[in-house]
Write a protein that binds this DNA or RNA. Structure first.
Lengths: 279, 279
DNA sequence: CTTGACTCTATACTTAGTATAAGGTTTATA
DNA sequence: TATAAACCTTATACTAAGTATAGAGTCAAG
């Protein structure tokens, strides 16, 4: 019966010597024989079985502590149970990753749009697809306040997302909405902000559809409500001049946020959009 | 302009105070103002923008160090690049998780089979579906050696798996195969072990199909080649007695491995199976 | 007998924080 | 104005699963 030194055991199992020493110290895998004089560890090849079981359980997401407990308890049914639990976890994980993936794809599209956007401050007519949004009503009219209030509202929205276990990645693509009737009255007023969400998003409450259609759009950098009012003015004036008919709600979309900060302030790339009918 | 204490800033952003102190120390997010007398940190609500960006980048899988570097460099294109990189990573991740999920489902089935298996040592006739295996040839005839050699071979296989970047989870469902011609000569000899793999497994080399069909099976616990020979004898004798015709390779499948160790040895639940035709 | 490869223990370090202690500050209440 | 509650400070230890390193001892081959 040949004994394996720690180095050979490690190489054989594609694991580090330190890891084996750690397992020894934890009592997870004691060497078959330890030389009392030198402290040298010697392993039996058959101990690979236990090492396999350890890495299998590790792969299933158990901590070394948990693994030790179960192996100590000689618990036959552990694996079956862990497998079942793990299956559920992985299902959830896959679902979350897919959601995240979609949000990332949308983000990528948005950054491309930013890079290839029409000239800032110039009105463009665009065909936009149907989009789904998740609305959140806040206590104040955001156009009556300044950026501080907007930040507070975003915090509210973020807490709301967290509370409802929505993917945080949605948070990077927000917007605000002015309802058509309010706009028709010539007012800029809103107490609604929203997130763009996926088509297959499941939630009964607060989900709304922005229909596909023709939109008059205008792009600008950075943000203040003063600036938004200015560009909204240009956009509305253009619509009036061209005799377009407004057929839906006004949308202010944060297309992308830039990781550049002046005085710690948000640096956003905005697209205002109003659905129209060409008469 | 109201200033936020660390506690308020933390609560507003669903983050711990310690995390904020850490970000301060790292230079990732310095408070707007620090009282020199008391050391109290005071944040501006607008700084939430930077905190949002930090958590967004964190969500995208960047370390705090990386985030700091990019924010310090005022790097506009980071996000676009990180997003693209992240998309690829997530794709891979999803693929791996799906593979793992399948292996887990198979493991669960196997454990159920173990729990509800026919009496040990009794021959049963079973219809088995088509299965795909990934064969690995080893240098020796495994039936001429003892368990030590088998363990060494498993190590070889494991390294092979790692090298070819196959999911390690396959490793929990292995087997060995005795080719029909060898069996027909009345010999128990093999230098092939294999892994059961998924239907959609992509690899041109070494992949083989075990056709669906009727199998004579026998189950037993634990393992030694001596024991396998004994049960193989019972199985073959049964086949001869009943005048069945052997129509394919002999399979020794490790249905499940139990996390119970005597003298550090592997404790396996085995199913021997020989494809037959009822005459 | 020496050299090189190997092993030992002990300690520090990693990440992104959490937990806690001991002490100072602010704010609300009595 | 006194005091208590709530809050803030720094410093240290801890988490998980190791990795990296130093300094000293051991083994095997030539």
């Amino acid at each position: 019966m040949d004994m394996l030194t720690i180095g050979k055991m490690a190489k054989l199992n594609n694991i580090s010597e330190q890891a084996l020493r750690l397992y020894d110290k934890m009592g997870l895998l004691k060497p078959d024989y330890v030389d009392k004089q030198t402290g040298y560890r010697y392993y039996n090849i058959k101990q690979c079985a236990r090492l396999d079981m350890i890495s299998y359980m590790k792969e299933l997401g158990m901590s070394l502590k948990q693994i030790k407990e179960h192996l100590d308890r000689q618990d036959v049914d552990v694996i079956h149970e862990v497998l079942k639990r793990q299956k559920i976890l992985i299902d959830e994980n896959i679902k979350k990753l897919k959601q995240k993936q979609k949000a990332i794809v949308r983000s990528i599209e948005n950054y491309s749009r930013y890079a290839a956007s029409p000239r800032k401050g110039v009105v463009s007519i665009e065909q936009l697809p149907q989009r789904k949004i998740y609305c959140y009503s806040c206590s104040i009219n955001i156009y009556e306040h300044e950026l501080d209030a907007y930040e507070y509202m975003l915090r509210e929205l973020k807490s709301h997302i967290l509370l409802h276990d929505l993917p945080m990645i949605y948070f990077c693509n927000v917007g605000s909405i002015i309802r058509k009737d309010v706009l028709d009255e010539g007012r800029l007023a809103s107490n609604e902000i929203f997130l763009f969400i996926d088509d297959d998003f499941e939630a009964s409450n607060g989900v709304e559809v922005i229909p596909a259609g023709t939109f008059a759009c205008i792009y600008f950098d950075s943000f203040s409500f003063y600036k938004e009012k200015k560009y909204a003015g240009i956009l509305l004036e253009h619509i009036k001049q061209n005799n377009y008919r407004i057929v839906g709600d006004y949308i202010c979309e944060v297309v992308a946020e830039l990781p550049i900060f002046k005085q710690n302030e948000r640096n956003m790339f905005i697209r205002l959009q109003i659905p129209i009918e060409l008469c």
